[in-house]
Design a binder for these strands. Structure first.
Lengths: 252, 252
DNA sequence: CGCATAATTGACGGTTTTCAAGCACTGTGG
DNA sequence: CCACAGTGCTTGAAAACCGTCAATTATGCG
């Protein structure tokens, strides 16, 4: 790992690796952490009921955490593995909304409308922490801090979506893919995982779908990046050799 | 107007028309209304300070409500006129993030990160209601209801962004523009304003920027729609003649 | 009335999609 | 252990679509 860490008091794993050898995020690096802390605090103070926070539930590859339209009950944090969220379409191909890596949250946008607006599916064998918000008491002071955290999360998500729209809509295929790989790299590193040598758990078509490109275009661009010495690809493993070159290719 | 309404007790205007003759949204149809109600309630119960809610402030065409990076203090509701939000770029052209019509809110996403992530600019002479959240007391029970409203708003915005991304990225120029005009029509109607005969306050380039297309493409498509008898255009005035045909052109 | 800005329209070229074929890898069952 | 099928990936060729550039017209404003 790029940045080895000491396991926190709430982490059952050390050195960021689990029994399966998959990289796993530490609690300190997890997006659910501020909320977990609120709940821990709440636990001592006012007695949050059991079963609100379910730690390290395993999810098998291909399994769905929830489907579009399911009544909202939980938000999830990825501990290991990877997920995609998508809007299923009966007639046409599904629309891939996002990818979720260790430390990142899934399902936050369902909270507002009482139902999940998308489906979340595991791209690999994974594990998640689940926060059952429906089992929280209806009122009480700790809720205000929790709500504040959620408002922050959603606000960041809106801003991210706006930036994403700008990227997707005003950039060429090469810029989109280079930017995508760089942002992936950055996201993994921010969570204490290796950011220059990682596995794309999703297919080329999934990436293309997400970026508004054909799967063939992704394939062609990856080989072009490799020919330019920017990256090295072995099936789904990606090594970023020249981050500066990638940044140039991403158009900023 | 399509649906004439009786002015509510908090509305200073009647029949949805203001002195300037511009269509104005009623309080009942305004996105800020649930929050206003919360504050009215709060006012009686616990005494919200004066100056929290500023009603019907006029904003001149070209004037900015706030700029990107300004410290967050307020969310705004458009009463009359129209706004665009954009991310300014020093080197390249600005990125248009969205358009805001009477009854719709501006600035919600700034709340989470304490600074506005975008600039809001009036496309026409307009008026807004301003809710100064920085003048709210730091704690107190009514906040919880307010926070819940804001979480709902942000959640809907996230979902909307996801759908928008899907549209922009997987549809042709014709589908995007047809869908854009239809969604505009629906948004205006939802707020009690005429939805089949309205004014595009923004330029062709603004629309193109927002949809990821060139201004020339917007121009060409509008004339094509008119040739097909779907719409009628006179400068910036649009009349939707065949909503069903537009829906077909939008690809769903 | 004249200038500045916005909108229209045409021609051309580049990028990306689509269609199609062949290849590589995985996992399964004999 | 190997053959096989299935899936995903790569690569090629042609066409569609949209962007850019440029010229012209229309509109608004002083």
């Amino acid at each position: 790992m790029d940045t080895p860490r000491i396991a926190g008091h709430r982490s059952a794993c050390s050195a960021g690796l689990c029994s399966g050898g998959q990289p796993e995020v530490e609690c300190e690096d997890c997006g659910l952490d501020p909320i977990c802390l609120v709940l821990d605090y709440a636990d001592e103070e006012s007695g949050v009921p059991e079963g609100v926070l379910i730690r390290r539930r395993p999810v098998e590859r291909g399994e769905a955490l929830f489907h579009q339209g399911d009544p909202f009950h939980s938000i999830y944090a990825v501990k290991s593995g990877a997920f995609k969220t998508l809007i299923p379409h009966a007639d046409q191909a599904d629309q891939v909304i996002g990818f979720h890596f260790p430390g990142e949250l899934i399902g936050t946008e369902g909270m507002a409308v009482a139902a999940y607006p998308c489906t979340a599916r595991a791209l690999a064998n994974s594990s998640v922490c689940e926060l059952r918000l429906d089992r929280l008491p209806d009122s009480g002071r700790p809720l205000e801090a929790l709500q504040r955290s959620i408002i922050e999360l959603l606000g960041r998500e809106v801003t991210f979506s706006h930036e994403l729209i700008g990227s997707l809509v005003h950039q060429t295929a090469q810029q989109r893919l280079a930017g995508f790989l760089l942002s992936l790299s950055e996201r993994l590193q921010r969570r204490g995982l290796p950011g220059r040598d990682f596995t794309l758990s999703m297919s080329r078509s999934d990436i293309g779908n997400y970026l508004g490109l054909a799967g063939e275009t992704i394939s062609r661009l990856l080989t072009r990046f490799q020919q330019q010495g920017l990256i090295r690809i072995q099936r789904r493993r990606i090594v970023i050799l020249d981050p500066a070159g990638m940044a140039a290719a991403s158009g900023s």
